[in-house]
Each structure stands twice: as structure tokens, then as C-alpha cells.
């Protein structure tokens, strides 16, 4: 069973070193999903707008998109991935359940948001995002 039983949708947080990348990919994924209020948020850069990874911005975004159906986190590389893993290891910082999804950021975000908006649960959202790695371009 992969459909949510109610109106709760899986939240998706996009963690990037760059605020513009995170917010841009979030807008693109919501646009391609065709839903104005898609449960996706960017968590990019440091609070002052410079490049980096902010624990505060990640946790804030996760709480914002969480509606009780779980949260999928997609990250770009390096400190973004390490910070998410560290927060998950803390156990009490992020909404429950929250999962780091092993997926390419842009393609995975589109697959995740479309699946979430379509009513998929956290397993389905994660599987769709991870499957994006199999999309070959040549």
C-alpha cells in the first residue's frame, strides 16, 4: 500500500550548498508537479546567504514541510550530506520519520515531489527519488 490514507503528504527538503540551487530546484519540482502548495522546501547555504550548510535552515525547512507523513531529505554533496547524517544521528532534531534519500538532487527532487503530491508514502517517495539514478541521458 503506497497511498496515504488522508490529506497528509510527505514533506521534501532539498539541502544544497547554495540557497539559489535549493530554492530553484524546489520551485522547479513544484512547478513540474503542477501544484502551487507542494510540500517541498529548499534549505540552501548559510543564514547570511553565503555558500555552506546550515543545520538551522535544514531543521526549519523540515518542520515547515512536515505534516505527519514523514520527511524525505535530498542533499547535494559533502557537508550537506554529512550535516544531514549528523542530524539524523542526533535522533531528536528532525520530525519523525525523516530519511536521507540517496538520489540525484534535481532529478530526484522532481520524482519525489510528484510522488508525494500523488499521495505516495515515504517509502514510495524515497523509491521514486532513488530510481532517478537509473534515468540515462545518452
Amino acid at each position: 500500500m503506497t497511498q496515504q490514507q488522508d490529506s497528509r503528504r510527505v514533506g521534501i527538503v532539498l539541502v544544497s550548498h547554495s540557497r539559489q540551487v535549493a530554492d530553484g530546484v524546489a520551485a522547479m519540482a513544484a512547478g513540474l508537479a503542477g501544484v502551487a502548495d507542494a510540500p517541498v522546501a529548499g534549505a540552501g547555504g548559510l543564514p547570511d546567504g553565503s555558500l555552506g550548510t546550515s543545520e538551522e535552515r535544514i531543521t526549519e525547512a523540515a518542520r515547515r514541510v512536515d505534516s505527519g507523513a514523514g520527511v524525505a531529505l535530498l542533499a547535494d554533496l559533502g557537508s550537506a550530506v554529512l550535516t544531514v547524517k549528523t542530524l539524523l544521528a542526533e535522533g531528536d532534531v528532525l520530525p519523525e520519520p525523516t530519511r536521507l534519500v540517496d538520489a540525484p538532487l534535481v532529478e530526484g527532487a522532481v520524482a519525489a515531489v510528484v510522488t508525494s503530491v500523488g499521495g505516495g508514502d515515504l517509502d514510495a517517495v524515497a523509491a521514486a527519488a532513488e530510481e532517478a539514478y537509473t534515468y540515462r541521458k545518452v
Binding site: L46, G78, L82, T83, T86
Partner: peptide, 21 residues
């Protein structure tokens, strides 16, 4: 360690944060 995770902003934040925690 918790402070480092929340303030460093680069990979050394989670790495040193994890070390101390």
C-alpha cells in the same frame, strides 16, 4: 559538539561535532 554542528557551516561542522559528541 552540538554547537559546532550548528555554527561551522562546512563539512568540519558535522565531523568535529560528531567527534566531540
Amino acid at each position: 559538539g552540538r554547537k559546532l554542528v550548528s555554527t561551522v557551516g562546512g563539512a568540519s561542522g558535522p565531523l568535529y561535532g560528531t567527534l566531540l559528541r
